[in-house]
Design a protein around this nucleic acid. Structure first.
Lengths: 335, 335
DNA sequence: CTGTTAGCGCGTTCAA
DNA sequence: TTGAACGCGCTAACAG
C-alpha cells in the first residue's frame, strides 16, 4: 500500500501538501493538485482507512445484527441495508445473534469499541422472551446510536422501523370478515415476539369491531418445534366449519393451503387464507397465498437512512418510529 | 471511549506502563498490573480498534462477497462464515455483488485498502459469464489473500472451497441408472456457471460409463427468465417415457416433482427425481425430493479456516482446493 | 501557495 | 521496574 509520504517524497513536496491536494483544498495551486493527483492514480494510492478512522473518530461502518439469516425476511432486510449503506458510502459489519441473548450481548460489546459508528438490529428472540434491555441502554449511553427494526423493544429510546403489525392484521382480518367469513382462526407460531403480539391484537380488535360476526376470536398457538402440518390438520378437524385463516408467521399460511387442498376444500370458495409469507416461500403454494407484503428491503433502507441521519446530526430531534407501508396482496384464487 | 492516556493520568503512571500492563508484559510488576487492570475493567476500557489496526497493519476483518443473499445456499454459507470467523476473533464485512461484475470490482476496490485482511467470495454470475478475472489478480498482487467458494475461477491462483460437483452429479446419475431408469434428463438452469458445467459433465460421464443405458445424455437448458413450470411440462410432453430427472439448480427439482404429481406419475415408482435443493425449499415438496446435500455452513467455515491460516502464515504452501464432502439423500418416496 | 508541527490511540524500542 | 520518545498514516492549525 502506497502512502501519502511516499507520494510526497517522490514529488519533492511536503506530506501536508499532498494531503491537501488530494482533498481539493483551495490553498493548493491547480497545477500541483494536478501533478499530485496524477501520481496518486498512477501509484493506485488509497487513503488508509484505519488512519482516517483514527483521525476522524468515525469508521463509516455500521454494525448489523440479524437474529437469523436463514429467515428469508431477514435476508431481504439485510439486502436492503447493504444496498442503501453502500450507496451512502458506509460499510456494514454483519453479525448473527442466532436468536441468543448472550450472543447479542457479545456482539454489542465487541463492536461498540469504535469498530462501528452505530447499529441496526432486530432483537433476538431470547432477549424478547426474557424481556432484557440493559445491554442496549449501555450502548446508547455511550452515544452510539441504534436503529431497531421489526423486532423492537418499546421502552428503549431509539429510532425504530416497523410495519404497523396491528393495522396490517386488522386490515387482513377485516378483509376476511367483509367476504362474509364466519369462522376465522388465527394461527400463531411466533407468539413470544413483539410482532406476534401486535398481530394478534389487530386480529382481535377487527373481530370485536365487526358486530355481525358471532364467534369469539380464536387464536391457536403452535409451538415452534411442533409438527406444523399435523397441528394445522388438527385445527381443521376441531373446526369443521372453518372458512378463514390468518397466518401471522412466514410459513404456516402456505402449509395451511396445502392442508386445505388435501381436504378438498376450494381456496376462496370454501375458505380464505391470508399470511405474512415472503416471496420465496410463496413460490411453493398454488393457488398463491394472499399475503401481507412486508417490504423487507424497504425496512432495511429506511433503517439505514434513519441511522445515518442520526450519525451525521441531521436529526437531533426526539426518536423516530417509522412505519413502512404494508400491502395486502389478494391473489387470484381460481382453482 | 476511555483511552490508555486517561487510565495513566488517573493512576499517575506513564502511558506505556499502562499499555504494557494491559498486555501482560513481564516488565511490569504484578502489583501494578493488577491495579491497572482493575481500573481498566472499572472504566470499561477497550483498545481502540482503529489505532490497533494502524499500528499492527492488521484489521482482523474479513471481506465477504456474496452474489445473492436471497439465495438460501449463500445465506447458509454466510452463516457458516460468520460463525467460524467470530469464533476465531475476526469480524466480517458483508457485501453483495448482486451477480454484477461492476459491483464486484467496486467492492474489491473499496475494501482492498486496508479495510479487510482478506476476502472470501463466490464469483458473480456476470463475471463468470464474461470470464473476467483481472480484478482478482490485482488484489492478489497486493498480497491480499482470497478464498473462493462454490463459484470459482480455475486459473486464479488462490485457495478454493467447493463440493466436487462432477462427482456429486456422477453419483446421482449413477443412482438413477442403478435403479434401472431408461430415460434420464438433466435440467439445467445454471449452465453458465462453473458449478453448472461440472455437474453436466458428471452426468454425461456417468451415462457414458454405463454401458446398458441406450440413450444419449439429454441436457435441457432452461433460460433463467423462462417460466420454469411450463418449461418442465414441455420436457414431460416431449419425453413420454421420461423416468429420471437430475435437477442441478436449487428449485427446478421441486417444481419437477409438482409437475410429475399433476400428471399422476408416482414418484419413485414411475419416475425418480434428484436435485440440489436446500432445506428451506425442500419443505415445500411432498414427497420429499431426493437431494445432493451441499453443506453450506461447512463450506463457509472451511473457507474461514483456510483464509485465516493464510493470514497468520500457517500455510505458506501452494494453494489449496478443499472439497467439502457431499451426500446424496434419498428420501422416503412412499405416496 | 507551501511547509512545519502536533496529535488521533496504541505498541515498542531505548534509557533511566 | 518504569517512563520518555517515536512512529503507524492521516488531517489541520498555524507559520512562512
Amino acid at each position: 500500500m502506497v502512502t501519502i509520504k511516499e507520494l510526497a517524497r517522490e514529488l519533492n513536496v511536503s506530506i501536508s501538501t499532498v494531503s491537501k491536494a488530494l482533498n481539493d483544498n483551495p490553498e493548493i495551486s491547480d497545477i500541483t493538485i494536478a501533478r499530485i493527483k496524477e501520481l496518486a492514480v498512477l501509484r493506485n494510492y488509497k487513503p488508509n482507512k484505519a488512519a482516517v478512522s483514527l483521525k476522524r473518530n468515525k469508521t463509516m461502518t455500521i454494525g448489523v445484527i440479524i437474529p437469523d439469516i436463514l429467515n428469508h425476511f431477514f435476508a431481504k432486510v439485510l439486502h436492503g441495508i447493504e444496498e442503501a449503506s453502500s450507496k451512502l458510502g458506509y460499510n456494514i459489519i454483519t453479525c448473527i445473534s442466532n436468536e441468543s441473548y448472550e450472543k447479542e450481548v457479545d456482539i454489542l460489546q465487541l463492536l461498540a469499541d469504535g469498530t462501528v459508528d452505530g447499529f441496526i438490529l432486530a432483537v433476538a428472540e431470547e432477549t424478547q422472551v426474557k424481556n432484557i434491555s440493559n445491554h442496549f441502554k449501555k450502548v446508547l449511553d455511550d452515544k452510539i446510536p441504534i436503529v431497531m427494526f421489526d423486532r423492537i423493544i418499546e421502552d428503549i429510546n431509539c429510532d425504530k422501523v416497523i410495519i404497523d403489525d396491528f393495522e396490517a392484521t386488522y386490515d387482513a382480518t377485516k378483509t376476511l370478515l367483509n367476504e362474509g367469513r364466519k369462522n376465522i382462526v388465527l394461527i400463531n407460531q411466533i407468539g413470544q415476539l413483539s410482532v406476534g403480539k401486535h398481530r394478534v391484537e389487530g386480529y382481535k380488535k377487527a373481530i370485536e369491531d365487526y358486530s355481525s360476526y358471532s364467534k369469539s376470536p380464536n387464536v391457536v398457538v403452535i409451538d415452534k418445534n411442533a409438527d406444523l402440518e399435523q397441528s394445522i390438520i388438527s385445527i381443521f378437524e376441531e373446526n369443521t366449519d372453518l372458512d378463514g385463516i390468518i397466518s401471522i408467521d412466514n410459513i404456516s399460511g402456505v402449509t395451511a393451503i396445502n392442508v386445505a387442498k388435501n381436504r378438498d376444500l376450494a381456496i376462496s370458495k370454501d375458505i380464505s387464507i391470508i399470511g405474512f409469507s415472503s416471496d420465496d416461500i410463496l413460490a411453493f403454494s398454488s393457488p398463491k397465498l394472499s399475503t401481507v407484503a412486508q417490504h423487507g428491503e424497504t425496512i432495511g433502507s429506511t433503517a439505514v437512512k434513519l441511522l445515518i441521519d442520526r450519525l451525521e446530526n441531521k436529526t437531533t430531534l426526539k426518536k423516530v418510529i417509522k412505519t413502512v407501508p404494508f400491502l395486502i396482496k389478494l391473489r387470484e384464487t381460481t382453482k
